[in-house]
Design a protein around this nucleic acid. Structure first.
Lengths: 227, 227
DNA sequence: CGGGTGCTTGATACCGATCAACCCACGTGG
DNA sequence: CCACGTGGGTTGATCGGTATCAAGCACCCG
């Protein structure tokens, strides 16, 4: 499972389409690929633990990874959910010593792995690597601040509506979404208990939201924006 | 009030001691100082509004700035509170078009102001500017994820205890802290209503925390860590 | 002394976590 | 083919924490 490998061609093409690679020039690209490795994890495997010595950051190639902290006696709270293309633990580029949270595979995942130290020096040598890191960190920071704001001023149904609206391309009329992961993961992503998500969905029924399994029908996108 | 000026010598020395400047080499330093400007705001002035065209980011030289969003009908929720040395709106370095929240002076403040576009190009030319931006963004991202985690798994008294412990140097025994700003600001920083902060303090009385005005006495630091 | 402002305190309402039971889909093995 | 177990999801009842609204208090400064 966590055998470390050089990239095979399929993983390589997946990685190249990732936001952390698309804007690199040819030399930076090869140098980055040079230090990239691939690790696979099965569902529920831990990628790393909070407090562990931090040597790598990761980019999701397929599957989903859950970042969380422990409260008391096995209770845990999600901080973030990462899907394909997402990068995590890159906030340790500044020089953090240890991981700040646990990372767990929510299903079978394959990750690209980069040594923090090597990327640090690479960023100091290749300006487009540095630029890419700045863009990554900026975007990640923006979305994290968005999470803080939403946590602090939206109720459960509002968060769900917000998520749905940001994940359907249609501007108005009806839309259909297939969740890429389990509902319990979505609950964690939104900072809710699974039961609360369930109730939020049933509260949104009268706003035209129908749920069957992972498929969500929205009868009127405009109406959903009012919530 | 919001007259734009070149730096005077006092502001200049303040800025130079700021984390965003300390690790720059001589040429980067002068180039950054070259594009820096100073703005002053009186208490309750808006530095910028959510949705406004974003052209600058800021570094606090003195005073405190509140970043917040509006909910409904004048109700507002704080996202972050910035003090001396803190940088804000730097997450737009990736190329964001507009500000994502309102920024308001919580008291009389003086800010250093940088054009996003100029810093972007500067970062692509001077590797230590890029490195500094990476460090800034990394640290900011780490602390923001910390906020998400704390919001999601700590109660009000725990957040206050956490804040106190991270703001007193003493490891054990007793300690004393003077809040650098109003309690209502602290409440916002911790994601609480002012009343909730007040109640949290009185709940912490039996953990040896005494509050008189802005001065907070902690009789037993070790005991506070248990909360 | 009067009037602000910031803070505290009390009463109430609401939201979401928690615990428990149940349902359903699925896979397994007798 | 059916009994059984498992895991994900829903639903209901209850509890706790915090927001909200309202009133009162302490302090500062005119």
């Amino acid at each position: 499972m966590n055998k470390i490998l050089k990239l095979n061609t399929r993983d390589r093409t997946t990685l190249l389409k990732t936001p952390m690679m698309t804007s690199l020039g040819p030399t930076s690209l090869t140098r980055m690929l040079d230090i990239a490795a691939v690790t696979n994890f099965e569902s529920r495997d831990l990628v790393f633990r909070e407090g562990e010595q931090a040597e790598h950051f990761f980019c999701v190639l397929s599957g989903y990874v859950r970042l969380f902290r422990l409260i008391k006696e096995g209770r845990e709270a999600d901080i973030r959910v990462c899907g394909p293309g997402d990068v995590f633990a890159e906030c340790l580029l500044a020089g953090g010593e240890t991981y700040l949270y646990h990372a767990q595979a929510a299903e079978n995942v394959t990750l690209a792995r980069f040594e923090l130290a090597k990327v640090r020096t690479l960023a100091s040598q290749e300006s487009d690597v540095a630029r890419t890191m700045i863009v990554l960190l900026s975007n990640h920071l923006m979305s994290t601040m968005e999470v803080v704001a939403n946590d602090r001023l939206q109720t459960a149904p509002q968060r769900v509506a917000h998520y749905l609206l940001h994940n359907c391309q249609d501007e108005n009329g009806s839309a259909s979404i297939r969740l890429p992961f389990q509902k319990s993961l979505l609950a964690g992503k939104l900072g809710l208990a699974p039961e609360a998500l369930s109730r939020a969905f049933s509260a949104l029924r009268r706003a035209g939201v129908t749920v069957r399994g992972r498929v969500i029908q929205i009868s009127d996108v405009g109406a959903l924006k009012q919530v």
